[in-house]
Design a protein around this nucleic acid. Structure first.
Lengths: 339, 339
DNA sequence: GTGAAAGCGCTAACAT
DNA sequence: ATGTTAGCGCTTTCAC
């Protein structure tokens, strides 16, 4: 026995399929007589009727699906964000199609083509670069989207981002409070908004705290990845500028520092303190457990989803960006400055 | 200007839409005259035609979508599996809908309902329990699926799983080689096939190696999670049966041991060696870096996807299960038995 | 309040 | 080799 359709329900209830459609739509239920509605509901129930979303989509031109673009799902930063988004989406009858771009523009292009081809109703994008031709084009083509974590410069698209400046401020203040005066910054890639925002915030915070504002203490990392962090720290160490603490652009960069510490037998936090950013899972299991700035991963995802759904439902709405609060999580990688 | 449809292309090319449909389908291109095909392709190209998969799905009753059920996407074991699956699926024109069940049967039920409601063509399931009524029911309802990592007892569904027995054998042999004689096992939940397979393999391996086969050395953990591992190890320690090494049912259980080591000031690997299972990311960053059994995460996902697509394309095919090879990754959490 | 009819964009018999 | 026709399951005018 094949799956029952609207028509089957209509026959069972002795009404026309259009009536069933109305009775089954909570937003239109009031257009039918209560008794009819009851009859229809019962018939649907007893047949085990399940609406076919594909047929509905074809008619309504809405797929109830959104695309979610991340650099790499295996980067532990993203699963919680995805789950936060998915939860909201699911509750509203949407599904997410997740795509990992691997920071590869060509791949990203292909994935976006596929998503748009699948008629997604919108995009949540966590891969933004400051200059991002693809996203600019999508925006021109009226594709609904919201950025998450990072944004694109001069592109008027809503973004949900952590309060980078506040987070860096917290990190620097914490270190300053421990007596550190010469603090280095492993800056994230400067083609990302987070990379520059955190670097700028770092310089401001250092200056505000009256610490040494030495340009030699800021070094840029090519990627937000361990190897880049390790490389940057080695450079810093090799050029022999003194420093007793590092604020890393994110946790992965900070983990790269751990590698160098092991390699060069540096004691952390005895000789050098380190602070990460994001608070990805398992940081508490590292040796030493890493002090970091926690961002509200799930909220980022959830807010982005809410925002996107808002834009879809209400195309006129001009949504602004949202800054989510962060907090400092002090663990074992920071200690008073050695004398 | 709205999106071009098949009909628009047909008009532009001066043929009927059915011809366009054929010309555009590589599998049917030979049914049309090469010249016509060329003309159609050019028209489609110049109009920027993109087929509408929703309309196609409505007609063909295939959504080109599969559901992927995992316990929790935030568990680092799963993202690589998901990516492995997604890659294969994407190449074949499919998309994955990912759902995290949180080991909650009711939630799993809701998610599956949603996936089936969305007309997925099949399911890849990484959440199997040995007794799994929901999956049994789905199987009865002819829902195509393949299990991954774990299986259901007495359910004839293809499964892609790591060679648990070989992995445990490798772990035990490694420890035996280091001189350990009293080895404990933190067994995974016995309602999962992996939990029992590894526990059984452990007992066999211990016996084969001529080591102490003491039942008191095997303790069951309620969940495959750190807290359960920690709890189990504490019990073991408290009952004062001597042992110098632990083979954990998975990496998370082993990480739970690390917590207890810190708590009770036990030296690992000086006093107790530990081996994990799975080789989730960042194990090399722990202190000590964890020795573990590496399973081919991505291959698991990729094979599962291939298998599922095979079952979808060829419904008659009776697919068997696949056992994927594992390898031991020796790091710093194992050392010669203390004298 | 309910029914009739059209049509979303595509594919698959069937006919020519 | 190509066109005709019908219809996938639903929503939405428009009548009544």
């Amino acid at each position: 026995m094949r799956k029952p359709t609207l028509k089957d329900v209509a026959e069972a209830a002795g009404v026309h399929s259009a009536t069933v459609s109305r009775a089954l739509d909570p937003g239109k239920r009031h257009e039918v007589h209560p008794d009819t509605a009851r009859r229809v509901l019962k018939a649907a129930e007893s047949l085990g009727y399940r609406p076919n979303p594909i047929a509905r989509s074809l008619k309504t031109a809405r797929s109830n699906t959104v695309g979610l673009l991340v650099p790499d799902l295996c980067n532990p930063l993203f699963p919680p964000i995805v789950r936060g988004a998915d939860e909201v989406l699911f509750d509203r009858g949407y599904s997410a199609l997740i795509a990992s771009t691997d920071n590869d523009a060509a791949r990203e292009q292909r994935l976006v083509d596929s998503l748009v081809g699948r008629q997604v109703d919108g995009l949540i994008v966590a891969t933004a670069q400051r200059e991002h031709p693809l996203l600019s084009r999508l925006h021109d083509e009226q594709v609904k989207m919201v950025l998450i974590n990072r944004r694109v410069e001069n592109l008027d698209v809503p973004a949900i981002i952590p309060d980078d400046a506040a987070g860096i401020g917290l990190a620097v203040a914490h270190l300053a409070g421990l007596g550190h005066v010469r603090i280095a910054h492993l800056a994230g890639p400067q083609d990302t908004s987070t990379g520059v925002a955190r670097a700028r915030a770092f310089r401001h915070a250092v200056r505000d705290a009256g610490l040494d504002d030495d340009p030699a203490l800021v070094v840029e990392c090519e990627y937000f990845q361990e190897a880049s962090g390790a490389k940057a720290l080695r450079e810093l160490l090799d050029q022999r500028v003194p420093f007793t603490a590092v604020v890393a652009g994110n946790d992965l960069l900070a983990m790269g520092c751990y590698d160098v510490f092991a390699e060069r037998d540096v004691d952390c936090p005895g000789e050098i303190s380190v602070v990460g950013f994001n608070d990805i899972p398992f940081l508490d299991k590292l040796r030493p457990p890493m002090t970091t700035v926690r961002i509200p991963h799930r909220d980022l995802g959830a807010e982005a989803a809410r925002m996107l759904l808002g834009c879809i439902d209400e195309p006129a709405r001009r949504a602004g960006s949202v800054l989510l609060p962060v907090e400092l999580v002090v663990r074992g990688s920071t200690a008073p400055v050695p004398d």
